[in-house]
Amino acid sequence: MTELQKLRGSEPASVGLALPTTPRMRYWKPAPALRGLVSGYHLYAVTTPPGRPHRDVFQPAWANIRVLLTAATDWRVRVGEGAWKPVGECALFGPSSQVTWSESGSGIVVGAGLTPLGWARLSKFPAASWANRVEDCDAAFGDVIAALRPLLRGAADDDALPVLFDAFLIGAMARATRLDSAIARLDSALLDPANTTVGALAKRIGITPRSLERIAARAFGFPPKLLLRRARFLRSLHAIRRAEPSERAAAIDPGYTDYPHFIRDAQDFLGMPPRAFLKLDMPLFAQSAKLRDQVLGAPAQALGSG
């Protein structure tokens, strides 16, 4: 019996479940043809006693498509201080500048992280219209994802999932857009701590500040100034996560004028001080952060790649 079949049980997912007693996850890199379009694929599997939901959190991230392999899973999320809302069988987690709190029953979810360029290839809508939102994926992509869902649910084992994602997304993202080059340059520039102002960012990319605003809204979901703050904060958050406690203050990005400046950003992006956030009991967040480092690489954390 395959690993995924063990997770589901011998019966179809809609009939019965056999899930691990501790949270389990996998990460995979996409095919080379999807480099720059898809940040990675992930699988989360959790089980909970009746009446005791699993609680976790997603860091600010680019857009993610997430498909429940166990369609009956009771799952709800809240972005920042927003209202709780149920998550459907196929959900789009839009680009976010705040944490997304999660409560769920037993279940398995598989997902694909879209880069800003991947969003521009796959969706006709500006990313800004989906920022800090979780909605049904068909609302953003029409019926494009509909054909993929039954294939994922019928996968023989874990390692069939990235193969299915690759085959589907290579075709769905094949058509280039006229903004591809500028989006890719902006994506790369946000990784560079030397870019600290909107003017410097526009100059680095070789476009006007007005064009930069349009591209940021279309593919990234936020104004350039917020994108710079977000990238700086995520670089710092994951630097202190990796650092020894005594070295954390020195690990933050040099773009911060002082540690209180970093704390103020933490309140905006996390809703709490960073040390309080990192002390929370968040099993999937802790495991996924380590796995993303190993599989996708540490730079992925700086922009919130899922």
Rank of each mutant, 00 (worst) to 15 (best):
83 A>M: 15
221 G>D: 02
107 G>W: 04
164 L>V: 07
294 Q>T: 14
170 I>A: 10
208 T>W: 04
189 A>W: 05
238 H>R: 07
169 L>T: 01
301 Q>W: 11
145 I>Y: 01
59 Q>F: 12
84 W>A: 05
165 F>M: 01
154 G>Q: 02
37 L>I: 03
96 S>N: 08
218 R>N: 05
113 G>N: 01
138 D>N: 08
127 A>E: 09
305 S>T: 10
227 L>P: 06
168 F>Q: 02
167 A>L: 08
228 L>Y: 03
177 T>G: 15
136 D>W: 01
264 R>Q: 05
85 K>I: 11
19 L>T: 04
236 S>C: 04
103 E>A: 13
115 T>W: 06
245 P>F: 02
16 G>V: 07
73 T>Q: 15
162 P>Q: 05
65 I>R: 05
263 I>Q: 08
7 L>F: 14
60 P>S: 06
48 T>F: 12
2 T>P: 11
162 P>V: 05
189 A>C: 09
94 G>T: 10
213 E>S: 12
82 G>M: 04
64 N>R: 15
14 S>H: 14
238 H>N: 09
158 D>M: 13
212 L>I: 02
165 F>E: 01
293 D>L: 09
119 W>L: 12
52 R>C: 11
117 L>H: 07
3 E>F: 11
67 V>W: 03
290 K>N: 11
44 Y>E: 14
126 P>Y: 06
58 F>I: 00
66 R>P: 00
188 S>R: 11
214 R>N: 12
294 Q>S: 15
55 R>Q: 15
297 G>T: 00
31 A>W: 12
237 L>Q: 01
219 A>N: 03
144 V>A: 10
101 W>F: 09
80 G>K: 09
61 A>E: 13
102 S>L: 12
125 F>C: 06
60 P>V: 04
249 A>Y: 06
102 S>P: 00
305 S>W: 15
48 T>R: 14
298 A>Q: 12
216 A>S: 15
230 R>L: 10
183 I>N: 07
241 R>Y: 08
268 D>W: 10
241 R>F: 10
247 E>H: 06
155 A>Y: 07
97 S>K: 01
200 A>I: 00
81 E>S: 12
190 L>W: 03
251 A>W: 06
10 S>T: 13
14 S>M: 14
182 A>R: 15
118 G>S: 07
31 A>E: 07
204 R>K: 14
48 T>G: 12
256 Y>V: 08
4 L>E: 03
158 D>H: 08
213 E>Y: 13
57 V>K: 08
183 I>C: 03
5 Q>M: 13
246 S>I: 02
231 A>L: 04
17 L>Y: 09
